[in-house]
Every structure is written in C-alpha cells, then in structure tokens.
C-alpha cells in the first residue's frame, strides 16, 4: 500500500516540486499518474523509492515510513518495489537472462531459485527465445520488456513505472501497458506515469492528475474525465 499525506518537496535549489500532495493506492490497484512536464510526477516516484525524502508530510510505502527510514533499511523497502524507467537501464554487457538474474542475485537468491524463476518471468514477458541476447540486439520494446521482467523478478508488491513507454512507438507502448495490466491482474499493484492520452484512455483505469505540484484530478476511467 502507498500513502502520501500532505506532502511537500522542495529541492536543494529551492524548486518547489510538490505542494501538498495527498494520495492513496491500495493493494491490487492499477493507477496512471499523469500531468504536464515538470508537474512533479517523477518527484512522487523518487519519494516512493526513497531516493529523496519529503520536506514536509508523510510518505508510507509497503509498511516503510520514508520520512524516518534508516539508510540501511532503504534496500529492504526497494525489494518490495519493481521500478521501470523510460530509458530501460539494462546492463549492456550482460545477456537478457543475466540482466534479470542479476536482480535476484543482488537480493541474495540461491542459484536454484534463480534457475527456476528467471525462465518463468522471461516467458511471462515473451522473451524466452531471446534470453541469450544482449540489450543492443533487442528492439526498444523488447528492452523494456526485459526491464519489466527484472522489475517483476523478486515478486514485488508494487510495480512503479516512470514513463515506461516514453521511448516507444504506439504499438510497443500498447504492448508494454498490456503487459503491466496482465501483471496487475496477477495481483501486483501498478503505478505508472504516462504522457500519452490515447494510451491512458484506452485502459479505463484510475487516473491521478498532477499539475504544478498539486493533485488536480483523481478519477476512474481516463485522461479526459478530469
């Protein structure tokens, strides 16, 4: 579960990115976070992953309090999340399989568990046949599916995606969103940032709109339903 209560965030240079954001995402939800450039979407994501701390207000993520979390606990918080970025962030000199297995090794999984789980998740994202390829041998859509597999591999409670389709053509974007929808149907909470109105409208999910650091809309159904 994710909760933000009256959250303010001012960056070191004085920029006020969030000005009193309150929102709540329950387990099992699928939520789009939309808003113009510079409105504070990525700031919300960074708060949830504990990359930054709120200036004021409360941020709770899967039982962790980001306000007071100890630095040594941050990895534990992140293990309950699967994070996806616009630019994929794969390791170039590792194969698809290794990129995904790596995330399991990092949290101390055994070889046996890795061998069982990686093929399963690669199958889920439809990349079993490209397990040995390197990222540069894949299309953007395929690379993002590797990133989705990596985000999923440790069975997170929440998937957080910051414009996962920003670098993809409409068709690949749809594929990724449908994949996230499927993952959500399997029980994982999904929060995804997006710019693309048509894409968002297509899914008829909950849409939270942020503008200039404030929540200006929170509706079930689509972009234009504000």
């Amino acid at each position: 579960m994710v909760r933000l209560v009256d959250v303010y965030k001012a960056y070191d240079n004085g920029t006020k990115a969030l000005k009193g954001v309150t929102m709540r995402i329950d387990d099992g939800e699928f939520v789009f976070l939309i808003g113009p450039s510079g409105s504070g979407k990525s700031t919300v994501i960074k708060l949830l992953t504990s990359e930054i701390r709120p200036t004021e207000g409360k941020v709770l993520v899967n039982g962790f309090n980001v306000n007071t979390i100890r630095v040594s606990e941050i990895p534990m918080l992140r293990r309950t999340l699967g994070v996806i970025f616009q630019d994929f962030r794969l390791i170039e000199n590792k194969s698809v399989y290794e990129n995904v297995a790596f995330a399991m090794r990092v949290v101390g999984a055994s070889h046996r568990d890795i061998k069982l789980r990686v093929p399963y998740v690669l199958d889920l994202v439809g990349l079993s046949h490209k397990a040995r390829r390197r990222p540069f041998e894949l299309s953007g859509g395929e690379q993002q599916r590797v990133a989705v597999a990596r985000a999923l591999i440790n069975n997170p409670r929440v998937i957080i995606a910051d414009e996962p389709t920003g670098n993809l053509d409409p068709e690949r974007s749809l594929e990724i969103m449908m994949l996230l929808e499927r993952i959500n149907a399997l029980g994982t909470t999904v929060l995804t940032v997006s710019h693309e109105k048509e894409l968002v409208n297509r899914f008829k999910k909950r849409v939270v709109t942020i503008d200039n650091g404030k929540i200006v809309g929170d509706r079930q159904g689509g972009y234009y339903n504000v």
């Binding site: 992953t49 630095v71 040594s72 990895p75 534990m76 918080l77 992140r78 293990r79 999340l81 994070v83 962030r89 390791i91 790596f102 995330a103 990092v106 949290v107 990596r150 440790n154």
Partner: peptide, 16 residues
C-alpha cells in the same frame, strides 16, 4: 556507475 545505480534500485545493500 550504471550497474551500481541498477543494483541500488533493485535493493542491493551497501555492503553488497
């Protein structure tokens, strides 16, 4: 650098 950023993101401990 990038690999380290990814490790942090997926929850690697400082020691790791």
């Amino acid at each position: 650098k990038e690999e380290i950023a990814i490790m942090r993101m997926v929850g690697a401990t400082k020691a790791f």
